[in-house]
Design a protein around this nucleic acid. Structure first.
Lengths: 156, 156
DNA sequence: GATGAAATACGCCATCC
DNA sequence: GGATGGCGTATTTCATC
């Protein structure tokens, strides 16, 4: 965090409010943080321009869209040189079923979160997509039985 | 998905647009889906009331808020009867650092995604919070080195 | 589902503290 | 850096077809 990225208590309140409701009008935001419209509008604009607020999104209910099935896949690559990693990363980013993907310390593995309709659908995604990503040598799947804390904005 | 949950192609377009930009005005939405304002406004309201749209949130940049550190923790419980699971679930939901938590098939384990400032902060969260959750017997941590596909709306 | 008008709320700006 | 007030407009809502 550089100097430019300093956020004070008021900014935090604004961010907290907007992460709960992206559509709050400036006047309401101003009322909540105890300032007038002018500085609040300026702060929101600044937060957007500084890239702290990336955007505003509708949050969808996975179960109502028949996308309740979540699996985590541990992926190992056969080639872990930088070029291969980049190729894998780019390809992974292009897969819509991949909701999250992190490179994990210790063995150049990836942990990939896959969202699908059901197990049959997951099986298809794994066989047709995940295991055909560049440089993949092996995968291990962990099936989620229950979402205890879920944080997903689906991208349709 | 019941009958009530039927969504057609227009609804999908609406959802797709709103997941990319929650603040699109109805007129713009109407233009994109090729309908007039009236039905589009009605459809959005219906999608909200049916719970398909859960809400609208600002998406924040973790790195600008000094919350770049992501770890996945595999948690095992010593008691896996329903009452114990419920206790764990409730306690996990109350931890702000837990961004996601899924119960995983095969062994009554949980996979927990933890977001924190850095490794030192993670160490604190693990020791003071995660490992003190009810019925936890052991944990294994996987540290993320790189976010390839990240899907996070931070909740401040 | 389309059209159009009316009421309102919203963001923006100029001014002042 | 923040407050106040007014202006212009964009947005929703509603009545009609």
């Amino acid at each position: 965090m550089s100097d430019m990225d300093t956020i004070d208590a008021v900014d935090r309140k604004i961010l907290s409010a907007l992460t709960q409701n992206a559509r709050l009008p400036i006047v309401e935001l101003a009322r909540r943080v105890g300032l007038s419209k002018t500085p609040v509008a300026a702060r929101v604009r600044a937060l957007e321009e500084r890239g702290i607020i990336r955007g505003y999104r509708a949050i969808l209910a996975p179960e109502k869209l028949d996308l309740s099935h979540v699996a985590y896949v541990e992926v190992k690559l056969m080639d872990t040189r930088q070029a291969a990693l980049s190729e894998f990363n780019d390809a992974a980013r292009a897969v819509p079923e991949i909701e999250e993907c992190y490179m994990i310390a210790g063995g150049f593995d990836y942990l990939v979160k896959v969202r699908s309709r059901d197990i049959a659908d997951y099986r298809r995604v794994l066989g047709e997509t995940i295991s055909t990503l560049p440089h993949v040598s092996s995968t291990s799947t962990y099936i989620a039985m229950e979402a205890v804390v879920e944080q997903s904005y689906l991208t349709l």
